[in-house]
Design a protein around this nucleic acid. Structure first.
Lengths: 327, 327
DNA sequence: CTGTTAGCGCGTTCAC
DNA sequence: GTGAACGCGCTAACAG
């Protein structure tokens, strides 16, 4: 059932159908005609072909999120969900594509979708950006690592995350800070700004630079890192973990030595995952407020689509802390 | 740059360009002409408009995964990633849409994408299925709760998951089994088959029906459930948790009583999440092999797209156990 | 004012 | 190997 059918049913031309359905300005169509068209639409159950609309318009009402290469955690899941809801309010459908190791060019995906906007966490190859723009995608939201104002929005928050970890520890008297890096190299995009924030906060507070160690999701190796921190000179008494999973590994390393946070070593995670309160002791965690992040991204997309300037980067209070006892 | 440009550059018609690019059978085109066309393609950097192709063909080379309403865990993430890679090999792009509470009709999404195939974990409304079929989407893979052979594939695996939890506990001498339900009602689609498997295994092994309790992600309430299991008559000595997160809550409940798994209460989780080895004691967990699941889904999609019958449901050995010590 | 005609956007495919 | 039509919605130009 196409617009031809509706036109026939309503006794008008296809053009009129289009004008009525789109409420085109500068087209004065009497109420009676409008009603006839709408009735025909209802009767026939007509729904415009999105494919034809996309061909004509050059873009679809889809927003494409290029998922990063790293494992999808609960944080991404929450943001994805919130974003889908918020964009749906604006008539946009969100879909996510897992890049999965760049085995095939990303262009295959965005060409197949012709999205109105593309969102990426991390940097995009300049070639890809150019190709997208050439293909008419002019809303490209790079959340981190980009060079525009939008590109820095999240990066600042990530740095703030690291800073807040240190500030929390320093406020509890810790003078020598450790940093627990993830074993997964794919996470370096995130680790970079977070660690930079940690370093900056240490410098600002007059502390030594952090003692950085890699901690896999493995209690034995974590126990090894714990030993080294405790025997360093001066000894590390508080650790910022890359994320909650790594923080849980550090806690497991402490258990292996029959030690406990926060007295033997304080630990602060990132992300506030649902099981953080279940850790022993419950895990203190810094996190980016998912709702505010969603709001920021949505405003960026909508502004871009309507040609308005990008919204201001979120304030530093987008980063919060759940203080639970491990630090 | 469109096929018109290529045709002009190569000195042929648009039809010829199309035939060459698609290697259309029953069209005898000389090698020399083919080369001229391909050279023009390279020179101009031509890429066919996916929108136009979709309009013409009625379907795109996109596979749409309608994500469930429940929180996206590492398991879904892994499957998503593997699936994206595997489908890319076949020239298909995978995108996922978070449904997010059914605030808007799903039809908006699949209409906008015109996917060649749709994958859903849980049941789809019959109306939606009918509308999709009417719109020309004839590959709809319902992993659970469907009534076709494909619809049961994963459901059997989920039941098998519950069975394996019980079998593992029974093999260690446990005669009275508890079941730790998730607090999140949205997970009932999954909880159903898993619990059914637990009940069936108990019956088969001549055990009492499981003592089912709801356990939120909250140590105190979990501690309460632990008390009730231990004081039941006969006492519950082994618990099957809905998933690893719930299992971690049960462990936290044990800690609150200064008790330990497996001696005071054995615990078996589901999913084998990355932090399962970090629990105290390391968490024993039953899980569906992600690679084999991906393989099964890919074969289902490809078979459907080429009109072949659906592949056989995966064997029961797709479900495995990581035996770590909590049970 | 009201509404129509005609043609675009682009790849695919039938008939010659 | 080609011309022409098709799939479907949008819209500038035009006629009643």
């Amino acid at each position: 059932v196409t617009s031809v059918d509706v036109a026939r049913e309503a006794g008008v031309s296809r053009a009129t159908v289009s004008y009525v359905l789109n409420d085109t300005p500068n087209q004065r169509i009497p109420e009676a005609t409008r009603r006839r068209v709408w009735e025909a639409v209802e009767r026939l159950g007509y729904a415009p072909s999105a494919a034809a609309r996309t061909l004509r318009r050059g873009r679809s009402d889809v927003v494409l999120w290029l998922l990063p290469d790293w494992p999808i955690g609960p944080m991404v899941g929450r943001v994805l969900e919130g974003l889908a809801v918020a964009l749906a309010e604006a008539g946009l459908a969100l879909v996510a594509h897992p890049r999965a190791g760049n085995r095939r060019p990303v262009s295959e995906v965005w060409r197949a979708i012709s999205p109105g906007a593309v969102i990426v966490w991390e940097t995009l190859e300049p070639d890809d950006v150019a190709a997208m723009r050439a293909a008419g995608i002019d809303v490209i939201l790079v959340l981190m690592g980009g060079d525009g104002p939008a590109g820095n929005g999240l990066e600042i928050s990530e740095q703030r995350t690291g800073r807040l970890q240190v500030e929390h520890l320093a406020a509890r008297g810790h003078r020598r800070i450790g940093y627990a890096h993830s074993h997964d190299e794919r996470l370096l995009t995130f680790a970079g700004p977070r660690l930079a924030g940690v370093r900056a906060a240490c410098a600002d507070l007059g502390l030594d630079p952090p003692d950085v160690r890699t901690v896999g999701l493995d209690a034995e190796r974590a126990a090894d890192a714990v030993s080294r921190w405790r025997t360093a000179t001066p000894a590390v008494t508080g650790v910022c973990a890359y994320n909650d999973e790594v923080a849980l590994a550090v806690l497991a390393g402490l258990h292996a030595h029959r030690l406990r946070a926060p007295d033997d070593l304080a630990v602060v995670g990132v992300d506030n995952i649902p099981i953080a309160p279940l850790a022993d002791p419950p895990l203190t965690s810094v996190f980016v407020d998912p709702e505010r992040l969603v709001d920021y991204i949505v405003r960026g997309v909508l502004a871009g689509l309507s040609g308005e300037p990008a919204p201001a980067a979120p304030g530093s209070d987008i980063v919060r802390i759940a203080d639970r006892g491990s630090a």
